[in-house]
Amino acid sequence: MFEQQPMKMASAEALWETAAPAPFSVFAIGDVSKGDNSVELSIPGLLSFLAHSNFTEAVPGINNVAAAEAARYGGKPADYIPNIFVTFWGFRLMIGFGMTSFVCGAAGLWLTRKKRWLAPERRTGEDEVPPLMLTRNRELSPFLTKWGWRCGILTLGFPLVANSFGWIFTEMGRQPWAVYGLMKTSSAVSPNVSVTVQIIALSVFIALYTVLAVVEVKLMVKYAKAGPVTSEQPPAKDPTLRGPDADADADKPLAFAY
């Protein structure tokens, strides 16, 4: 990313000045968009490593990239700086929500295991709900078990949230370019589509997706509460196969119908 879009990398980290080695900021307090952040926690050299695979090489900073772009494409350096607050926190929220999902998933995979790394008497069958097993013999306390399952439900939307913040970060971090170095967003805008038209279109989509989200979530809740259909049986034979009994199956209802 630092090669194709150096500004995006610098703005993701709110790295204002070129640094060698460049630190990876885990968390910052203060206004990152002020040009000088009071970073609370950062890992020295990690950004250099992410960019160059070594812990010492320089990573270009926001001010340096902006000055270079202004010199090359014209205008003020400030014209080439995206919204640092959004990019910095968008990147952190993307990674935060994504990693939380990953950790929950990995924990769930371990805790809900049914056969492996379990004492024989603690193993559970195929259609049983497994107890949350920490070690071979040790089960989570009832309180933690309750919250373990709840975490599973509550973090359902996290990958979507992480994804959304990732898109917001990558699109905002690209500004003012639509295509880096070739086309600015301002020249990519359709000249004959007015702001009013765009507001109407955006409102239509927001309304549409809000309604659909409500319907979708309601349906998911309904089906989750109902639980799996246990009476369903696989078909005795594949009705598409032509055999002596194919005609007997010809009027059988569809296993799935819209």
Partner: peptide, 29 residues
């Protein structure tokens, strides 16, 4: 084409989105 025919294409897109979910949701309740 897409900026000139903005509203007709928006209408088509909204229709196609709704049509898809209508097929999927109709028998769900």
């Amino acid at each position: 084409l897409f900026s000139g025919f903005y509203f007709p294409l928006l209408a088509i897109l909204v229709c196609l989105i709704l049509r898809v979910v209508a097929f999927e949701y109709r028998a769900k309740r």
